[in-house]
Amino acid sequence: MSKADDSLHRRPDLRAARPVPSLQGITEMAARDRAYHDLRYRILMGRLAPGTTLLETELAGLLNLSRTPVREAVIKLAEEGLVEVRPRHGVTVKPLTVKDVADILDIFSALEVRAVELVARIGLPATEWRQLERLASDMERETARGDIAAWSELDDEFHAHIVALCGNDRLQEALGACWGQQYRARLCIVPLRPSPVQSDLEHRGILEALKLGDSALARLRHQQHRDRADAQQLHLLKSHLGTNGMA
């Protein structure tokens, strides 16, 4: 078995491209990592609202940590575009705007389309095909039930699973950074989303292209899927945020 083949049979990090915020295992982390994951969780889940400004000392008190790990965490969050740091003025959670989300989706979708193309080119192992088939069926079940929140979580897992098989770690890291910046927007629109019947059909089409190993077809179908889904997300977000397009 070649090195490339062997890499396909190792269990992928399914959340590499879509690191959904979680506090799981946070108590065992080093202080710097604990500060980063805690603050990121609070920001993405809306517990630190857009526009909130806190001094570094206040953040340290909030997290019950010293200022050094908090400062390091803030630098990383600023690099991800989630906060703005102004010397002597504190740390501000960046507002959510339609333009920002549109810019992020331009990058995120282009990278994800490339990842799907790579998976088709490499070939999809049978075990991973069965897992993706199960996820597609689970999404269709939640669509029939009308549980959009459950469907949205499965949708994340479906796309993350495919991307995790692309064999390009740098691409996955770039996707992860973009994902965090638009996660807040995704949460906002879950209650507004229509029944995702069209997405379910498009997922089946993408799976068919992957099973065939047709990289051109996989790229085309995923591009069409992203174009439609992104347009819908931006429309719903604009409706949610109101005329100023900001929250």
Rank of each mutant, 00 (worst) to 15 (best):
N64R: 14
P50G: 05
P125N: 03
R71D: 04
E72F: 05
E58G: 10
A110C: 10
E80H: 11
G90I: 08
E79C: 02
E58Q: 15
V116C: 06
A102K: 13
V98Q: 02
R121D: 11
A120N: 05
K99V: 13
R71H: 11
G90L: 08
T97C: 01
T68Q: 15
K94A: 02
L63Y: 06
V116R: 07
G90A: 08
D100A: 11
A110D: 14
N64Q: 14
L55K: 14
V119K: 04
G123V: 09
V119H: 07
V93D: 08
R114N: 13
L77T: 02
S66W: 07
E72A: 14
D100G: 11
I104S: 11
A73P: 01
A60H: 08
L77G: 00
G51H: 13
V98G: 01
R67H: 05
E72D: 13
T52R: 08
P50I: 09
T52H: 00
L54K: 12
L62S: 10
P125E: 07
I75C: 02
L118C: 05
L82R: 03
E112Y: 14
T57K: 06
T92C: 00
V113E: 06
A73T: 08
I122D: 10
G51N: 12
A102T: 11
L111I: 10
L111K: 07
T53P: 00
V93T: 13
P95R: 13
L118F: 08
L118W: 10
A102I: 02
T92H: 01
A78N: 01
P125L: 04
V70I: 09
L105Y: 06
R71V: 11
V101A: 05
L63I: 15
E117L: 08
I104H: 09
A78F: 00
V85T: 12
H89T: 05
